[in-house]
């Protein structure tokens, strides 16, 4: 079995982002970047399937700036076998990402394609579902447990109000939710080993995919912020305020 995992380089989740003063986007110069946390979970899941012997090869793909190769190296250090980097400085929309990944899937013919459920920068939550649609594959989104045999994937999904279990024919798309696993830290020897692993370099035009924008971002602004309120001295005052001032209880 062959597995592909897609990873995205995003602003680190601990960074407090700032909107650019000209309202064209987010300040990203000199800011710590990391692998999207949901993609780390996707890589971990792939590595575990690789280690269990169910998968023979784990390929990691990323689309973006030259520095995305660092993110691919992180995944290689976690245990992926080889990388594919589709290099572009353009910001690419989820549908175009899905089209590029479809070309990779058709070339590599994996049995399973694992992606994070959403990237924490644009919060779209679309790419996995779109890739499943374009390939005509089944989809197991927001997965919190994945069990595989040779022709099926059993997926427990996080849904509003509880859990849902579905059975997918392979090949299938999986998108990861938080509880699927806890990603490992790469060890130093594995980081050294990852430097020797192969990363294939492509550009979008190699795959004949039109990546032009369908959506214009007109402006990006700070959300309206809340003012800090008052500190009450005790519970009696709190309940009094909620009853008589805010009138919410």
């Amino acid at each position: 079995m062959k597995i592909i995992v897609a990873v995205k380089r995003v602003v680190d989740y601990n960074v407090k982002i700032r909107v650019k003063s000209d309202n064209t986007g987010i300040e990203t110069a000199n800011i710590k970047m990391s692998m999207n946390p949901f993609d780390e979970i996707a890589v971990e899941e792939g590595v575990r399937l690789r280690e269990s012997g169910l998968a023979e090869e784990l390929v990691v793909v990323s689309i973006g700036h030259k520095q995305s190769q660092e993110t691919i190296r992180t995944a290689l250090a976690m245990g992926a076998d080889r990388g594919i980097h589709i290099q572009t400085d353009e910001e690419i929309e989820p549908l175009s990402i899905a089209k590029l990944l479809k070309e990779i899937a058709e070339k590599e013919k994996p049995d399973l394609f694992i992606l994070g459920k959403q990237a924490i920068d644009d919060d779209s939550n679309q790419t996995g579902q779109m890739l499943a649609a374009l390939l005509g594959w089944s989809q197991g989104t927001f997965a919190s447990k994945l069990t595989l045999d040779t022709s099926n994937a059993n997926v427990i999904r996080e849904i509003d109000g509880g859990l849902e279990t579905i059975k997918l024919n392979l090949p299938a798309i999986i998108t990861t939710d938080l509880r699927l696993n806890t990603p490992r830290y790469a060890s130093l020897p594995n980081i050294m080993k990852a430097k020797k692993k192969i990363i294939e370099e492509l550009v979008p035009s190699d795959l004949n995919v039109d990546i032009s924008h369908r959506i214009n971002t007109l402006k990006v602004v700070e959300p309206s912020s809340r003012e800090a309120g008052v500190i009450v001295k005790d519970i009696v005052e709190l309940v009094d305020k909620l009853k008589n001032e805010a009138k919410v209880i």
Binding site: P94, L95, Q129, M130, L131, R157
Partner: peptide, 20 residues
């Protein structure tokens, strides 16, 4: 989770970029 699961699949097959 219902809408997030289904609509991107619809959107891709309409060749349309969804807005989430």
């Amino acid at each position: 989770t219902f809408g997030k699961n289904i609509l991107p699949r619809v959107s891709a097959l309409l060749d349309v970029q969804q807005i989430s």
